[in-house]
């Protein structure tokens, strides 16, 4: 089998016009270098290498079991909570290896936020407390700062108008879509550099999904996002770049191809990418 990451980087290098034509290629905020993840010695993701450009939306696509979520969770060291998990290779956040020991996982996670598949507001907290929980975890106590951050995060998450008069209500009273936007607001309040999103609309109805997608679009000029999705249309709508993953023969996920979204969907270089995106579009 061909060494896929090599192909991927080759694709990257051979990628002149699409992005270059409109604006200069942005800096890479995250650089993955031969990232592998294994559970109890069993490889789940193998040797993934690609760059995530700053203030762009990068989508991780691929069939289920291809290791998208596993890879995503390696980017904020969430695998640390699973004792059987091992991550090798390096992930550079602005040049610093997050697995290098120089960056404490707690600090890392306040710089790399995450929104989960199912909305997970803290049920014991009010809406307000949820939004500022990340700031409080990071030691912010001053009421005026918290108020300010809550308002701007809720405005950014397009939730301010609907919750401004019930900030003390429990988060459980919100609808599913609102809860997910609350979770996005909660992450934004910490002002992360990167926001990881793990299939953020898979538990939502189409209407709520559309609003989250619009939100991702609005946020894309202020925060870098990496979004895992199994929904091809969603990837093509919200992302600037796409990374396509596939399960290898030994059931470990591998990166097949990465590039600008219109290239991945329009003229992918790898036959498997083409099969997948076209199969999905029918």
């Amino acid at each position: 089998m061909v060494d896929q990451p090599e192909v991927a980087s080759a694709t990257l290098d051979a990628l002149p016009p699409a992005a270059a034509s409109s604006e200069p290629e942005p800096e890479s905020i995250l650089m993955l270098r031969k990232v592998s993840v294994s559970f109890s010695g069993k490889l789940a993701v193998r040797d993934v290498t690609f760059d995530v450009p700053e203030k762009r939306v990068t989508a991780l696509i691929g069939p289920s079991g291809s290791g998208k979520t596993t890879l995503l969770r390696a980017l904020n060291r969430l695998h640390d909570t699973v004792s059987s998990a091992r991550v090798t290779g390096s992930v550079l956040l602005n040049g610093t290896d997050i697995y290098g020991g120089a960056l404490h996982p707690t600090l890392l996670r306040s710089r790399v936020g995450m929104v989960f598949q199912r909305p997970n507001p803290f049920p014991a907290m009010s809406i307000y407390d949820n939004v500022v929980s990340g700031l409080r975890f990071n030691g912010v106590r001053k009421k005026s700062l918290l108020d300010e951050a809550a308002e701007s995060a809720l405005i950014a998450a397009a939730l301010w108008e609907s919750v401004r008069n019930r900030m003390t209500a429990r988060a459980g009273v919100l609808s599913g879509g609102e809860q997910q936007r609350l979770c996005i607001a909660r992450s934004l309040a910490v002002e992360p550099e990167v926001l990881l999103m793990d299939e953020p609309t898979s538990a939502l109805d189409p209407q709520a999904t559309r609003r989250i997608e619009e939100l991702i679009d609005e946020l894309s000029d202020r925060v870098t996002m990496v979004i895992v999705t199994h929904n091809m249309q969603q990837a093509s709508r919200v992302s600037h770049r796409c990374a396509f993953m596939l399960m290898g023969d030994d059931r470990a996920g591998e990166l097949i191809e990465v590039g600008p979204t219109d290239q991945i969907f329009g003229s992918p270089t790898d036959q498997r990418t083409s099969d997948y995106v076209q199969g999905r579009f029918g």
Partner: peptide, 26 residues
């Protein structure tokens, strides 16, 4: 639920903060 714990960790909460402010209240 582990989503609650991961939700707190992903916000940069320390293990203690996760336990005291999220797990115990839940």
């Amino acid at each position: 639920p582990s989503e609650q714990i991961e939700g707190a960790l992903a916000l940069g909460a320390t293990r203690w903060q996760t336990l005291w402010r999220v797990v115990v209240p839940h």
